[in-house]
Design a protein around this nucleic acid. Sequence first.
DNA 1: TCCTATGTTGTATG
DNA 2: ACATACAACATAGG
Length: 271
Amino acid sequence: MPELAEVEYFRTRWNPGLGRKIEAVEIHAHARIFRGTDAKGLVRALTGAKLERSEARGKQMLFVAKPARGKARAWLGIHLGMTGDLRIEKHGFAPGKHDHLVLRQEKEALVFKDGRMFGRILFALDEETPPWWSKIAPDLLSREFTVAVLGDFLKRRKKAPIKAVLLMQERFPGVGNWMADEILWRAAIHPRQAAGSLDAAQTKALYREIRWVCREALRIIGKTMGDPPKSWLFPHRWQKGGKCPRTGAKLMHATIGGRTTCWSPARQKLR
DNA sequence: TCCTATGTTGTATG
DNA sequence: ACATACAACATAGG
């Protein structure tokens, strides 16, 4: 389920492990989530290292640990894919089928689980921040994300449906299927409208709703995994016979940009 | 049995 | 080179 705010929530679930030493590391090295990653190096560097801090950017998480010796840091990147999650278990817990990474500490175990294994573990041992972390696009709530930046991107992806464009992580880090639908519903833009055909007013509305949904999702979901209220599209979107909370009209569904998309035809007209 | 799933990526095509 | 579309990945649940 993880998009921007869910990723932030799962990141904080490992907070009890910060400032503590990792006694042992257990992995399923063959698991798909380690594709392209130096799994053995990861185990070597993290064993005995002290977990220092963590951070979330878009759909990615970073955990930084200080190995027992040397100046380098161990950089552990985690992407939750479609079904990944992080949790804490008691000392001595036995990993389940899809628990692919376990960091054992004195009192607790930090666990990464991912049933479908669309997620990914990244790792680096270096004094510098690895490029796979520093190259993530600017946060949508930062000053670097402006209406002009948004407008330029829409012009470059002019023929693609706006729904598909919002899912592009190179510009909209953290936006996933439900956030994109929520944003378009609030901005009253049809998900099939070509990105390059948005006028100035639509672009401004889109910008405003991107920021609003990011901020509110982080506030409601990021801290406690709370449920967005009934005034959002979110709780109605998958309900059979779901109705638009603003117009009362029946919601529509179709595959757009390769993903199941929900919109309110009464609010979102194709232009 | 068949369909769905809050994500990315490799490949084909324009 | 860039933009676009879509199958493929792997598993569980309705």
